[in-house]
Simulated assay, not measured.
Amino acid sequence: MKINFRLLLVISFCLVACGVNSKKTENVPVMIDFKKIMTVYFGQYQPVFKPSIIRPNNSLATLHIPKENLSKIEMNEIRKKLKSDGWKEVENYGNYSEYCINKYQKIAILFPENELEKSKDGEEIYYSDKNSWSIFLYYNDSGIDHCKA
């Protein structure tokens, strides 16, 4: 009888643990596909898609668009469309801005003009081409700090 009780206790513990883990990920929205974001907002500007990390729970990619293909005025229209589609602007400082659709997914936009670009909080922004817009696409199912607020 004691063995069955212990076995029942172990099985119950496993079921509860599995239930807690499934509830944790249950409320996390599915990632909006990066290539869909690229097509919807930036497709007509001939972006170059460069994935860095593509995993189900954590993804990062960069779009590069030559500055001659996308003006600042056109980017302002894209920013308006992002906002009207539910993306919340969480930072707009100098040549850098960030938009979150929820606390798990973010778009960051950089128009590099200086050798060293920084965010509002002084964090260095790394980019590879001064002659192109850098659009950073992030997803993390644990949340993104700037998007949690």
Rank of each mutant, 00 (worst) to 15 (best):
E124K: 01
V90K: 05
D141N: 10
G143Y: 01
Y127G: 08
N27M: 10
E115D: 15
G19V: 04
I135P: 08
V16D: 04
K2A: 10
M31S: 13
F111S: 11
D141P: 00
K24N: 06
V90M: 01
I144K: 03
E123P: 10
N140D: 14
V90C: 05
V30Q: 13
F42M: 05
Y139H: 02
Y41V: 07
K24Q: 05
Y41E: 04
S97K: 02
E115G: 15
V16Q: 06
S52C: 14
N92A: 08
S71F: 03
E77C: 03
A61R: 12
A61D: 04
E113Q: 15
P66R: 12
N27V: 13
E77G: 10
L9Y: 00
M38T: 07
E89M: 13
C100D: 08
S59A: 14
Y99R: 06
I101E: 11
V30S: 15
G19T: 07
V28A: 00
N4R: 07
I11Q: 00
I3R: 07
G143A: 14
L82I: 02
S22H: 14
C100H: 01
G86C: 04
D33H: 04
F49E: 06
K80P: 02
N57P: 01
N76G: 04
E115Y: 15
D141W: 06
R79T: 08
K148F: 06
Q105E: 15
E89K: 12
S97H: 03
Y45D: 15
I78F: 12
Y127W: 08
N95Q: 04
Y104V: 06
N4G: 11
E74D: 13
D145I: 06
S142R: 12
R6K: 11
P29D: 03
V30N: 14
K23F: 12
T25C: 00
K2Y: 00
Y96H: 02
Q46S: 14
L15R: 00
D129N: 13
E26P: 01
W133L: 13
I32A: 05
A17N: 06
E68Q: 13
K67T: 03
V28E: 00
K106W: 09
V48W: 02
R6D: 12
Y93S: 12
K148N: 11
I101M: 10
G94L: 02
N57W: 03
K118D: 01
M1F: 13
Y104E: 04
I78R: 03
M38G: 03
M1V: 14
S134C: 04
P56L: 00
D85S: 06
D121E: 09
T39Q: 01
N58K: 00
Y138C: 11
S52P: 09
C18Q: 02
G122P: 05
L70Q: 12
I144R: 02
P112N: 12
K2M: 09
I53R: 06
I65F: 08
K106P: 13
E113S: 14
Y126D: 13
N114R: 15
V90G: 09
Q46D: 14
F42H: 04
K67I: 07
D129V: 06
N102I: 12
D85W: 00
C18N: 06
F111C: 11
A61H: 11
E117V: 04
K81R: 09
K2G: 14
H64S: 15
I32Y: 08
K81I: 11
I144T: 05
M38N: 03
I101F: 11
K2C: 07
E98N: 03
M75I: 13
T62C: 15
K81F: 03
N21C: 10
D129I: 06
I73T: 10
L8Y: 09
